[in-house]
Every structure is written in structure tokens, then in C-alpha cells.
């Protein structure tokens, strides 16, 4: 059965550094004028964000070189690597809500800068919400880094299977467009493996930003 997780705006800490990174300030300090705009847009964002996720637990196993996850089978080597030795995994879909998509569109109309800043806040927020969900899943030491369709060789097409399994449209209003985009924007689908061994990987952002060809932990 699918479980719904929701969070209030104040329960999710959106990292300022993450917003600035999305705006292109890698390591550099944002200028005061930009900081002011981030503050203003963040206030608006917090007034309309509606964090919701649905999540379920599935069994996973490997059969004839294919990874089987109850609702889907895949030949993705990247995901198989990520889930190696995991007998179960969590499947999740999370969103910041329809009002966020409207706010980004509205602010982009007022000024592209505000649009870009709100978009960056949305990106940082959905990441923070996913981290929050991760923490609610139990001892994070045993959780594999979050893995989303589109990472490595896991095709984006399997998103529809994930959403169907979770009844995401019905439960949290999250759907796919024909072009394979999640809507509302600032949403995520992911698979999180539950391992019996402690997760040794210490890359806080997980597989999607890790460039290691031969992961020693999978």
C-alpha cells in the first residue's frame, strides 16, 4: 500500500548554499542584491509550497541479469549496481505542488531574474524534501543513495511505471507529460535501496552526481 508523506513549509530546511549553487555561484558568495531577491522569492515560495510524497516498499531481486522490482523489470546496470545486495527498496514520488509551478511562471513573467531565482529555490526545496523523506525511512546508514530515472542508464520512460505503481496522480497530483516531464515541475521520482549492510558511500548527493565508473560500494 502506498503511504503519503506531507510536510509543512517550515519543516523543510532549504539550504541557502544549494539555492546559490543552482544560480551558478559555485563556491562564490552571492552579491547582496541577489541575496535580497532570493529572500523575497523564498518568502513567496514558502507561502505556497505544498510538500507531498507517496512512497511504497517493494521487493527487489535480480533474475537472468535483469533487475526485478515487482512493478517493473529493467536491464539498467546503474540501478542494479545501486541496489546490489538490497532485497527491498522504497519507491517514491515527491512534489512541491501545483502552486509552485504557477509561482515560477508568474515570477518569470514579472522578471526573468525572479523566475530563475524561484526556480532555483524550487530545485533546492525538492532536494531538501527528498532528504527529509530519506530520514523518515529509518536508519539512513542502511539506505542506498537515491536513484532517479534518467541517472546512468536508467531510462526516463520507467517514470510512468513508478507513478502508476504509486498512484501518484491520484494521491499527490503528480503526472507525466507526453514529453516525459513531471508535472507539476519541481517534483522527483526515485528508488531508494534498503541494504542489510551499512552504506559506506559518503557522497551526500548520491549516484547522480558521482562520476566513479567502478563504484566500490555497489
Amino acid at each position: 500500500m502506498t503511504e503519503i508523506i506531507s510536510a509543512k513549509a517550515h519543516e523543510i530546511e532549504i539550504r541557502q548554499s544549494a539555492i546559490e549553487e543552482y544560480l551558478g555561484y559555485f563556491g562564490a558568495k552571492a552579491d547582496p542584491a541577489t541575496l535580497d531577491i532570493i529572500d523575497e522569492c523564498k518568502k513567496e515560495f514558502l507561502g505556497c509550497v505544498d510538500y507531498k510524497a507517496c512512497i511504497c516498499r517493494v521487493e527487489c531481486c535480480e533474475e537472468n541479469g535483469r533487475l526485478c522490482l515487482e512493478f517493473m523489470q529493467t536491464e539498467s546496470k546503474s540501478l542494479a549496481g545501486n541496489l546490489r545486495n538490497c532485497k527491498t527498496a522504497f519507491v517514491l514520488a515527491a512534489t512541491t505542488g501545483a502552486a509552485v509551478q504557477r509561482l515560477i511562471a508568474k515570477n518569470a513573467l514579472i522578471s526573468p531574474l525572479r523566475g530563475m531565482v524561484t526556480d532555483a529555490i524550487g530545485s533546492a526545496a525538492i532536494e531538501a524534501f527528498c532528504d527529509y523523506i530519506n530520514r523518515s525511512l529509518g536508519d539512513t546508514d542502511y539506505l542506498r543513495p537515491r536513484f532517479s530515472p534518467g541517472y546512468g542508464d536508467l531510462s526516463l520512460e520507467c517514470q510512468q511505471l513508478l507513478l502508476d505503481r504509486l498512484e501518484a496522480k491520484k494521491l499527490i497530483g503528480l503526472a507525466l507529460t507526453d514529453g516525459g516531464m513531471l508535472t507539476p515541475v519541481k517534483s522527483v521520482t526515485a528508488i531508494v535501496g534498503l541494504s542489510e549492510e551499512k552504506n559506506k558511500c559518503r557522497n551526500p548527493k548520491g549516484c547522480m552526481v558521482c562520476n566513479r565508473v567502478n563504484c566500490p560500494y555497489s
Binding site: L23, I37, V117
Partner: peptide, 11 residues
């Protein structure tokens, strides 16, 4: 100069 500043100037 970073993208937000570039946009601020453009605006």
C-alpha cells in the same frame, strides 16, 4: 559576474 547579476543588469 554571475548569471543573476547579468540578468539584473539586463532588466
Amino acid at each position: 559576474v554571475y548569471l543573476p547579476q547579468l540578468l539584473m543588469s539586463a532588466e
